[in-house]
Computed example of a mutant assay.
Amino acid sequence: MRLRIDLAYDGTEFRGWATQPGLRTVQEDLTSALTTVLRIPEGSLTVTVAGRTDAGVHARAQVAHVDVPDDSVAVAADQLYRLGRRVNGVLDRDVRVHHIGPAAEGFDARYSALWRRYAYRIADAPALIDPLRRREVLRWGRHLDGDAMNEAAATLIGLHDFAAFCKKREGATTIRTLLEFDWRRDDSGILVGHVQADAFCHSMVRALVGCVVAVGEGRRSVAWATGVLTGKQRDQGVTVVPAHGLTLEEVRYPEDAELAVRAQQTAARRTSTEAPA
């Protein structure tokens, strides 16, 4: 039986999503909690996620799936609701399961996704710095020109090879479709970057943000961002901004009838070693 899990977490104390020996990760904590609650042998579950977030990155709306033995959990919705509550009772408070339910036929948290949307938050003036939000907002010492950043960001939208903004992984493609990249100030004045793509490669969002921040400071021209993209290799002038300003905000899936087809299409054009992050 495949279950869909919707969850959120504060990534501050985690070394990212993916399990790493001797380190605390979201995948390890969630897998351990599920194993404990379902009373099944350790090592018998594999939790697959929509976006493998890096160390320090947060998620407001992460999605995962896990295959469990049919006899380990009742199908009844009320019992699955209690399963979510019991899992939360085992997890630390920086991870919360919002919902656990039967996955639709053909659902794959990673490959069925149409796109992922992240937000990056920057406080670029002393009056905007809120100590209560220090774990999710980057403090920046210079004023940033949001209009210039939007001009630069617009030149990066579309289907491209984003090798200049990705940490290389053996056998993994860096071709992505960037669907949205823009900057707006919220009601408090915080500058928020909205970044949406079919998938992201390792460190891509933080490198994209670092690139347009250099434009927003006036240190680089709008045309420079395009030059970085077409260079197809890491540019030393691009700073990968800190992880804590980044939050996964949404993952979108097609209608249930299209889930399996989407998963097959996505898997066919990616290598088995690649994962969005």
Rank of each mutant, 00 (worst) to 15 (best):
R234E: 14
R220W: 02
T173P: 09
L259E: 10
A199I: 02
A207M: 09
R234I: 12
G193M: 07
G141S: 12
G171N: 12
G245E: 03
G158H: 11
A148E: 04
S221A: 13
L114I: 15
E255I: 03
G216W: 01
P131Q: 11
R206E: 00
A154E: 14
C211W: 06
I157Y: 10
T230H: 14
A152K: 03
W183F: 13
R134T: 14
N150F: 02
D256N: 08
R133W: 08
R134V: 13
V238I: 11
W224C: 01
V251P: 07
A214Y: 04
G141H: 13
P131D: 08
A125L: 04
R134P: 03
R142P: 02
S188C: 05
A154P: 01
V209P: 06
M149E: 03
A163F: 03
G141E: 12
M149I: 02
G146T: 07
G158R: 07
D147Q: 11
R135I: 06
H160N: 03
V137M: 05
D145N: 13
E136W: 05
L246Q: 06
E255C: 06
R134W: 07
T247W: 07
L229M: 06
R139T: 06
G158S: 13
R176G: 14
G146F: 00
D235G: 08
Y253M: 12
V241K: 06
T177A: 15
D256T: 02
A152Q: 07
L178C: 10
P242R: 09
R219K: 15
A148S: 05
V212K: 12
V192M: 05
F181N: 11
V137Y: 04
G227C: 08
R252T: 14
L229T: 13
C201N: 05
L114Q: 10
L132H: 03
D182R: 13
W224T: 01
D198S: 01
A260P: 03
V212S: 08
L248T: 04
E136R: 12
D147V: 11
R206W: 01
H194G: 02
H143V: 12
Y118L: 13
A152R: 02
V241S: 01
V251W: 03
A119Q: 15
E250G: 00
G227H: 04
T247N: 00
M204L: 01
S203W: 15
H160A: 03
D235P: 03
S203G: 06
D130Y: 05
G189F: 06
R169T: 08
A225S: 13
T239E: 13
A123W: 09
V238W: 07
H160W: 02
W224A: 00
F181Y: 15
Q233M: 07
V137G: 05
S203L: 10
N150G: 08
R169D: 09
F181I: 07
E250H: 11
T226K: 15
D256P: 13
A154V: 01
R184N: 08
V212E: 08
V241A: 11
V212H: 06
L246F: 12
P126S: 10
H143T: 14
R117D: 09
H160K: 01
A127F: 09
R142D: 06
P254F: 12
I122Y: 04
E170Y: 09
A172I: 04
Q233V: 10
A164Q: 08
W183L: 04
R206I: 00
T226F: 08
S188E: 15
G216R: 04
K232Q: 15
Q196W: 00
